[in-house]
């Protein structure tokens, strides 16, 4: 009597329903996708944090440089620098200043005074008259 080969299964035993395979594959796919996205999010979060930190450091550096620049640009510093380099600058004598008038000259020369003149010309209520 021939021995039964237990390793050899029948065709019926080997069949796994395709729907089950599909479901399992889908679940695995979704799971892998989720893990991938999650990992990507973590990575992006980490990059954002690094960039935030770098941005802040650069901002602090900029402020430091601005402060230094402001210190160098004070009239006193400029005057000291000029003296250090032997440059003795003075205002031009009145006679050396030539004023050329055109239709816009007044506006340009007195641009700072524009508002002042406007306010002076306002009709105002006299409070203590």
């Amino acid at each position: 009597m021939a021995r039964v080969n237990r390793k050899k299964n029948t065709a019926d035993q080997q069949i796994i329903p395709p729907r089950l395979i599909l479901t399992v594959l889908t679940v695995i796919g979704v799971g892998m996708g989720y893990l991938g996205i999650r990992s990507r999010c973590e990575q992006l979060g980490s990059e954002i944090k690094k960039l935030e930190s770098s941005c802040e450091i650069n901002q602090r550096r900029l402020e430091n440089e601005e402060s230094k620049w402001a210190g160098l640009m004070t009239p006193r510093s400029i005057e000291e620098a000029l003296t250090r380099h032997g440059l003795n600058l003075t205002w031009p004598r009145r006679g050396q200043v030539v004023r050329i008038y055109d239709s816009r000259a007044n506006d340009l020369a007195l641009v700072d005074m524009k508002d002042a003149v406007r306010f002076a010309e306002l009709e105002r209520v006299a409070l203590n008259e």
């Binding site: 901002q59 602090r60 402020e63 402060s67 402001a70 640009m73 004070t74 700072d112």
Partner: peptide
């Protein structure tokens, strides 16, 4: 002034 100069600033 026209180009404002810094008189006070906070530094990190």
């Amino acid at each position: 002034s026209r180009n404002p100069n810094i008189l006070a600033i906070s530094l990190g």
